[in-house]
């Protein structure tokens, strides 16, 4: 508790706002369905009805209640983007650590492979995967993870290169510690600063990619309720009933901003605690 409180105090104000926003959005996504006034996937009124006492945010293109759909449609984006980001780090961190620590042939091969992946545009990769293996959540998660792997690998590798020459790594090598221990215990905790600063950008990227692919109809399929799908379905009626597009779009935007400001705050705290290492008097 006291640690959490200290972190809160160390947070710059924008990060505090972001944290509150992020918690709110996550709560909406998880608990929202419980508060939905109507079943989210059933027509309950006329299409594109404007906001009223009956439908607080109006209805969508086939007469479903927008508020109910907004409250129910966040979970899929958050879960898919979260899984994709996790998977991307699970692949990228070991690759980057290995390539940064092993500057021989093996490390070079890893990096050239990563470069090939980097050369393929993100959406193209996702479209090819979706058409080749069929639309679906698993393909979506794997595809988005693959999009992120090259950049994560590069960041981890660059940070690892900087750390590898330091004396405490040499001390571990002189003891004959295993490569796995050197990478996991000595190096990884010391590159967490740049990694954490990057998490926000990656997660936001995942959210936008999930949304884009869903919007294109290659991800989550229509009976499902999803913010990005809502934008896609209702964009034809944006002049009659803007809320059906604006509400999910605003939540996606808020999610992106919140995650980024929180990640910046965390990175700032980490940067400070490692920089303070030089301040202690001899």
């Amino acid at each position: 508790m006291s640690r959490a409180r200290r972190a809160w105090r160390a947070f710059p104000p924008p990060a505090r706002v972001g944290l509150v926003g992020l918690v709110a959005i996550v709560l909406v996504a998880i608990l929202g369905p419980l508060f939905a006034p109507y079943p989210p996937a059933t027509s309950v009124g006329p299409p594109f009805a404007p906001p009223s006492a009956e439908f607080l945010l109006g209805t969508d293109n086939i007469g479903q209640d927008v508020l109910s759909r907004v409250l129910s449609g966040g979970a899929s984006v958050l879960i898919l983007a979260g899984l994709a980001t996790l998977l991307a780090y699970a692949i990228g961190i070991p690759l980057g650590l290995f390539a940064g620590y092993n500057r021989g042939l093996a490390g070079g091969i890893v990096m050239r492979g990563v470069d090939v992946l980097l050369a393929i545009p993100a959406l193209l990769l996702l479209l090819v995967l979706a058409t080749g293996a069929g639309a679906g959540a698993t393909i979506l998660v794997v595809g988005i993870a693959l999009v992120h792997v090259p950049q994560i690998t590069r960041i981890v590798r660059a940070a690892t290169l900087q750390t590898t020459g330091r004396a405490f790594i040499e001390a571990a090598e002189a003891r004959g510690d295993s490569t796995a221990r050197i990478l996991g215990v000595e190096i990884l905790p010391n590159i967490s600063g740049p990694l954490l600063a990057d998490v926000g950008v990656r997660f936001t990227g995942s959210v936008l990619l999930v949304a884009a692919v869903n919007f294109l109809g290659l991800g989550v399929q229509p009976p499902a309720v999803d913010w990005a799908l809502m934008i896609s379905e209702n964009r034809s009626g944006i002049s009659i009933q803007p809320w059906a597009v604006v509400a999910p779009a605003a939540l996606l935007a808020a999610l992106a901003v919140a995650v980024n400001s929180v990640a910046d705050g965390i990175a700032r705290i980490y940067g400070r605690s490692s920089a303070s290492g030089e301040e202690a008097p001899a």
Binding site: R166, F168, V185, N190, G277
Partner: peptide, 8 residues
Amino acid sequence: YDSLNPRQ
């Protein structure tokens, strides 16, 4: 300042 792991 360099020979100890800062995160342990």
